[in-house]
Design a protein around this nucleic acid. Structure first.
Lengths: 224, 224
DNA sequence: TCAAAAGTGTTGTGTGTACACCCATGT
DNA sequence: ACATGGGTGTACACACAACACTTTTGA
């Protein structure tokens, strides 16, 4: 540990990139922004930005998330750090990637700020991305699936009150396959984390049971 | 994305820290180094160092690992990045933590280099650590246990040829509890990743069957 | 023949999977 | 009465847990 002077070594730039997922129109979507500057001008990229010297990594991620989507109290988890020497043609840039899960009720994409465009893309129709962002996105999708399998993260995509059918659809979008209704409901109810809510009746069929979480979602998901 | 100039923002320093585990003397151990400079002089810390401007994060981690232990082809996985503003009293330092698993045959702690001392500590007897290294270590232990449960990472602690009893002991050290021999063996053999090796006979009891992995360990462990 | 560790099978319990029909409501 | 999505139970297969004795070797 030769660290008598932390300024002895040339420093890299550090950014955070946030892979923002939601479910919309029966599909798993990710938010991408169009770059309006070189390099990779006019290409789509994962939203992100530089970490300020006086904010933590998580603060930086939350700030960027808020700038892009206006939301501030959502599921946000650090993913992985990417630091290949040539991943950014402008110089040495290390990025710490995060992923966030939103339910689409919460979202209002910034109409404000600068010219760059932001848009939801189906994970099945991702364009060519700037930098190493394809790698970051693939990693995020892998982790997302993994989290769905082993945790209760799926609830992050849902509003406060929801039906079991809604929940099941979310699992089906993420895994791109169908599940048996009876088995699915059995498994979910056995977790014993849901409570019944009053039924809303204005559908032209049997009205569904509404559920909500017994506890706040952050108390349920264990981060590994 | 306002990044016309990557030097617009003041840059943090970036380090890698490597939590190095091994099994020795019937115990799970972690390698710590004694700091010989301020801050935290004379306190124990997780080995690490600054990322050079022309090496990737993984190269930096491998370089540090080699400097500390002399080994170069071991299991190494990125853990998490820590970037609180005040985690280092000297200034803004972001660290990307890694964890490595060694089998103790491979190790020869550097006798070379500088004055600082390196020593194996039982995870049950960790001294007070410098910086936020206690948090990093706790995170590493949590991840290690998790990996043991859901992957075949345990083999990283073993030499090329090993017995099932050796393997079982490793699980027992990590989980700090005992397993049933018959069930354990059944489960492992069902994985179908082991092949029998010739039996070595120089023990004063029934000689154990030696096994080795059918494939290289890196092809077996899936990183999540 | 003894000490020391290796090796081996069966039974019960719980978890996951496959599968088809009736229910409640609005129109 | 019908169309629409909501809701429910049982049987089988497989994975996991509990449990005790015999085998092989060197001394």
């Amino acid at each position: 540990m030769k660290e008598e002077n932390i300024h002895k070594f040339e420093k890299p730039s550090v950014t955070v990139d946030i892979v923002i997922f939601t479910i919309k129109n029966n599909d798993l979507k990710v938010l991408l922004v169009k770059r309006n500057l070189e390099p990779f001008k006019n290409m789509w990229a994962i939203p992100g930005g530089f970490v300020r010297i006086s904010e933590s990594l998580e603060q930086a991620a939350k700030r960027e998330l808020k700038e892009e989507t206006g939301v501030s109290d959502v599921y946000l988890e650090q993913l992985y750090s990417f630091g290949d020497v040539n991943r950014d043609p402008r110089g040495r840039v290390i990025t710490i990637s995060y992923f966030a899960l939103l339910n689409s009720d919460e979202i209002k994409l910034r109409a404000t700020t600068d010219v760059s465009e932001a848009k939801w893309f189906s994970v099945k129709e991702i364009p060519k991305l700037a930098f190493d962002h394809e790698e970051i996105l693939n990693y995020a999708i892998k982790r997302l699936k993994w989290k769905f399998e082993y945790t209760t993260i799926a609830f992050s995509f849902l509003p406060e009150k929801f039906t079991l059918t809604q929940l099941q659809k979310i699992y089906e979008f993420v895994f791109e396959k169908e599940f048996d209704k009876r088995n699915f409901r059995k498994k979910i109810l056995l977790l014993n984390i849901l409570k019944k809510e009053k039924i809303d009746k204005q559908v032209s069929h049997r009205p569904p049971q509404l559920y909500s979480l017994k506890k706040k979602i952050k108390e349920i998901i264990e981060i590994v």
